[in-house]
């Protein structure tokens, strides 16, 4: 017999294939990170600022008609900012804008080079220590512990004093003890990861040491490594400016933000503010940008940490 009232609802047909279907497009780990990073205003500003500063530093000297070491001792000394000299000139008649760009090139190069070298040494050293474990790890980490006690900037100053000045020397001095951080981080991560099941699975399937390390272990630590890398850059830039400020960094006539600030210290009293202001502004903005970006990256990579 037909029911008098037709049922308005009907049971859905259960099809396991449909139920299991994923409706949204899958996002990878890095897409997730990028999505979170994109929403972080501060981090995004930092990233844009880094790009802008890099563009100005590397393209500025091409636009400007002046050279960083071009002097105009007769008419061009201590000119305030104008259409001709955007950031004014210094006491030797050199264009401050071009010198700030030149300093930016050096700072960014040193920051990136130091960070990358730290990365290479730290990953290899920490990777071996963490992967081999046992006695090897014990010995390697004792060495790190002893070197860890060395005060960073004091060591760098000491090295700079005895080595011939120059950009290569600065990078070298910064990385002599700079890789310790990275080595400790990588070693700790690998030590943790290598006990996990996916490593065992890979081993069972016949993966060799190299494949295990570079295909399985290191990619899984790339997040913390990336954060460390981003935060190493501003500390290297700071160290370079600090050394140049002390007279140990790049030598005249090459411009560096540190040397420019040091040369301009007398203007606190004499009043040519632009000589101090522009290099200081660029230095602070660069540090700010990298720090903000690094912080944002940390939040984006580890959403649990975010409050």
């Amino acid at each position: 017999m037909e029911p008098t009232v037709r049922p308005r609802f009907q049971p859905a047909v259960h099809k396991s294939a449909v139920a299991e279907k994923i409706r949204r497009p899958q996002t990878t780990y890095w897409q997730n990170v990028w999505n979170r990073l994109r929403k972080n205003l501060l981090a995004l500003t930092g990233l844009i600022l880094i790009v802008v500063i890099a563009l100005i530093s590397f393209l500025g000297p091409m636009i400007s008609p002046y050279q960083y070491n071009e002097q105009d001792l007769e008419y061009g000394r201590n000119l305030p900012p104008s259409v001709e000299h955007w950031f004014g000139t210094d006491d030797l008649g050199r264009d401050v804008f071009v010198r700030v760009c030149e300093g930016g090139k050096i700072s960014l190069t040193i920051g990136l080079a130091a960070a990358l070298i730290d990365l290479c040494i730290g990953v290899i050293y920490g990777g071996i220590a963490g992967y081999r474990g046992g006695r090897t790890d014990e010995i390697m980490m004792r060495i790190v512990d002893v070197l860890w006690g060395l005060p960073y900037l004091l060591t760098v100053i000491l090295l700079m004093v005895i080595m011939p000045p120059g950009i290569t020397t600065i990078i070298l001095a910064l990385t002599v003890t700079g890789w310790l951080n990275m080595a400790r981080l990588v070693r700790g991560q690998i030590l943790q990861l290598k006990e996990q099941e996916f490593v065992l699975a890979a081993k069972t399937l016949g993966a060799g040491t190299g494949r295990l390390l570079f295909r399985h272990l290191l990619p899984n630590t790339s997040g913390p490594i990336l954060i460390m890398l981003t935060l190493t850059v501003p500390s290297a830039i700071f160290a370079e400016a600090f050394l140049s400020f002390l007279g140990l960094g790049v030598q005249a006539p090459i411009a560096s933000w540190g040397t420019m600030i040091n040369d301009a210290l007398i203007t606190v009293l004499s009043g040519e503010w632009w000589r101090l202001f522009f290099p200081a502004l660029f230095l602070c903005l660069t540090m700010l940008a990298f720090n903000a970006f690094g912080d944002g990256l940390r939040d984006a990579l580890d959403p649990k940490m975010r409050k």
Binding site: P234, F245, I261, A264, L265, V268, L276, A280, C284, M287
Partner: peptide, 10 residues
């Protein structure tokens, strides 16, 4: 964190 002492001092 971003402003070094030798900028803040002057």
């Amino acid at each position: 964190i971003s402003i070094p002492g030798f900028v803040l001092g002057p």
